[in-house]
């Protein structure tokens, strides 16, 4: 069983001319769990991953895998598997030949080619030229390339992009099982909702800077609370809340108060002698997404 090793970014900075794509980015990604690397498009995710993989030279700082830079790893495919974009294939080459090329380049047993084709479900299309592949099939071929060396570390850039619902379900289960085997899994996405059900840890980057890191649940503490409150005499309640410095917003099911806890709202109503018919903290379905968007700023909605 391949062993997962930590991925480490240590003060990594990349400037393209005067534009800083990534600024002083430091993070550690541990084995045995799926880490989501999140941020809006253009936040610096792909550049960070390419620096980790030795494809882009950092302006300063250092990114390592198990303590070694990518270039220092002998037969890198056996340690790190990466799938960076869905278009890195010669359209005139079959999936099988594509995998044979990279198996040879990294001294991997040719039998692994059929194994990984099978693992991603491409065996029936293995001899077809890639030009005839759908985006979903290309994603699977990219993943197959990453799995060639049975690596302990997997780095996947937007692997869910272009997959159908069935494919998304499949890749979630697949990544989970790989992490459970003790591998290090780093998955980037610009949509939290896409990976919310897959990741254990999140690493959020915006405008080239790390803005949050921690377990997925840690995002909840950043969520903006909503308290729903209502009264048979709603105008009186609204007045009392406003007087107490809260900003009640009328909605279908009552008044929405943000930035306060239910007990504070209840105390205000009690003091003003307003009867309450409804009082609860809303468990909004979009809570994580909201805090994600709050972290990455307005452009996150793009």
């Amino acid at each position: 069983m391949p062993e997962g090793v930590p991925i480490e970014f240590d003060g990594v900075t990349k400037r393209f001319g005067s534009v800083a794509a990534v600024s002083d980015f430091s993070a550690t990604i541990l084995p045995g769990r799926v880490t989501g690397f999140l941020g809006p498009n253009g936040a610096g995710k792909t550049t960070s991953l390419r620096m980790l993989l030795g494809l882009v030279a950092p302006t300063s700082g250092r990114a390592t895998i198990g303590g070694r830079s990518y270039a220092e790893i002998e037969r890198p495919f056996a340690t790190v598997g990466a799938a960076l974009e869905a278009a890195s294939f010669h359209p005139g080459r079959s999936a099988r030949d594509h995998l044979r090329v990279y198996a040879q380049a990294s001294s991997i047993d040719a039998r692994r080619v059929d194994t990984v084709l099978d693992a991603v479900g491409l065996t029936p299309y293995a001899k077809r030229r890639v030009s005839g592949y759908s985006l979903g099939m290309r994603q699977r071929l990219g993943l197959a390339t990453a799995l060639l060396g049975d690596p302990g570390v997997l780095v996947l850039d937007e692997p869910i992009n272009g997959l159908d619902p069935e494919g998304i379900k499949w890749i979630r289960t697949f990544l989970r099982s790989l992490a459970d085997e003790g591998r290090t899994i780093l998955v980037s996405s610009h949509l939290l909702s896409e990976v919310q059900q897959t990741v254990d840890e999140v690493l959020i980057i915006a405008k080239g800077r790390l803005v949050h890191t921690g377990p997925l649940a840690s995002l909840e503490s950043h969520a903006v609370h909503q308290v729903v409150v209502d009264s048979p005499t709603r105008p009186a309640l609204a007045d009392a809340l406003t007087a107490a410095g809260m900003e009640p917003v009328p909605a279908d099911d009552g008044l929405i108060v943000t930035g306060a806890e239910p007990d504070q709202v209840g105390a205000v109503a009690f003091a003003a002698r307003v009867q309450l018919s409804v009082l609860y903290r809303r468990k909004a379905a979009s809570e994580l997404e909201d805090s994600f968007l709050a972290l990455v700023g307005e452009e996150g909605s793009l």
Binding site: G54, L55, A71, I73, L84, S88, Y102, A105
Partner: peptide
């Protein structure tokens, strides 16, 4: 071909 089809990425990943 390597530039055009962006296969430099997997090529340099396999042979840094």
């Amino acid at each position: 071909n390597e530039f055009r089809h962006k296969t430099l990425t997997p090529t340099f990943l396999a042979t840094p």
